[in-house]
């Protein structure tokens, strides 16, 4: 059979940065609950020439919003390098494959494959949880499309090619969940994951231990450490209580409590942490949760 034509979108800025070995920095934007894309544009402009790629979340926390794919398309038009987050919660394998191909047709190459939060955690708890594929199977689906076939084995007219990432949680809190994170990470690599983003970390030691472990396991895929910009001690306490896998140490909470200037302290905490873990990872993924304006200062402090 005639070899299918392989269409190649140029390597993205983000992909180039990671492959070059440069300390790579990404962030993420959450689409608005509405149809005004200016909001996204303003937040993105704060990051122009500061970071290497911008994730767009896919109905994060199961809250209905403007779509990730649409926002990625606009970011691309405005000259940014978007990373399309894709979850398995809302789409079956037909829709997932179709959206992946749509992304590629729009010139979007970077994908972050996720399972997604459960439906009852969001603002439409009545919604049908789809989960037709899991995140490992989603990576497998992407790999299959890249081979020029759909999941049913039908030929595509062209082969797309993506830059594929996945997530891992270094803070899993039981023996079973920690070991399963490693097992699942390996499966993700074997199904084509080319980079990882971690759940937010605050404790450099926990992260170092995790990285040592994955090196022992011979997992040699670049890892971007997840960094959340901490806005207050209240936020820290909330995350410790309600966000699985995230643990803010007491010392950091104390520092936040002791200051009036939360923004400066936020920048200091984030940059100290990044400088501490820098030798152990390929880069960081900064979640600013509305404080995008402070990202340039954090980045400037990276040594």
């Amino acid at each position: 059979m005639e070899e299918l034509e392989k269409t190649t979108i140029e390597e993205s800025k983000f992909e180039k940065a990671l492959k070059s070995g440069k300390f790579t920095i990404t962030s993420e934007l959450g689409p608005p609950k509405g149809v005004d894309i200016e909001e996204i544009k303003d937040a993105a402009e704060l990051l122009r020439d500061v970071i290497d790629g911008i994730n767009v979340t896919d109905l994060q926390s199961s809250v209905m919003r403007l779509g990730s794919l649409t926002c990625c398309h606009f970011l691309k038009e405005w000259g940014f390098d978007p990373i399309f987050q894709v979850t398995c919660r809302d789409r079956n394998r037909l829709a997932l494959q179709s959206d992946l191909m749509s992304a590629y047709a729009m010139g979007i190459r970077n994908i972050l494959a996720l399972t997604g939060d459960y439906t009852t955690t969001g603002d439409h708890p009545q919604a049908c949880p789809v989960f037709d594929l899991d995140s490992v199977q989603l990576l497998w689906a992407i790999k299959t499309l890249e081979e020029g076939k759909d999941l049913a084995g039908n030929e595509l007219t062209q082969k797309p090619s993506f830059f594929k990432g996945a997530v891992v949680n270094p803070g899993a809190d039981t023996e079973a969940s920690y070991e399963l994170q490693i097992i699942k990470m390996k499966k993700k690599v074997s199904q084509g994951a080319q980079f990882f983003q971690t759940q937010a970390i605050f404790d450099a030691e926990v992260f170092k231990k995790f990285m040592e472990r994955i090196h022992r396991e011979n997992i040699n895929v670049p890892v971007l450490a997840g960094i959340i910009l901490l806005k207050s001690e209240k936020m820290a306490n909330y995350m410790n209580k309600f966000v699985p896998g995230v643990f803010v140490p007491e010392a950091i909470i104390k520092k936040m409590e002791a200051t009036q200037d939360k923004a400066s302290m936020c920048i200091e905490i984030a940059s100290t942490l990044i400088n501490e873990i820098k030798p152990y990872c390929a880069g960081v993924h900064i979640q600013a949760l509305g404080w995008e304006r402070h990202i340039p200062a954090v980045v400037k402090n990276i040594k």
Partner: peptide
């Protein structure tokens, strides 16, 4: 598993209990 996951847990588990 509410998410019917076949290849390992989601990141939502906490202290061995389910996200849901």
């Amino acid at each position: 598993c509410p998410k019917k996951l076949e290849n390992g847990p989601c990141a939502g588990q906490s202290k061995g209990k389910c996200e849901t």
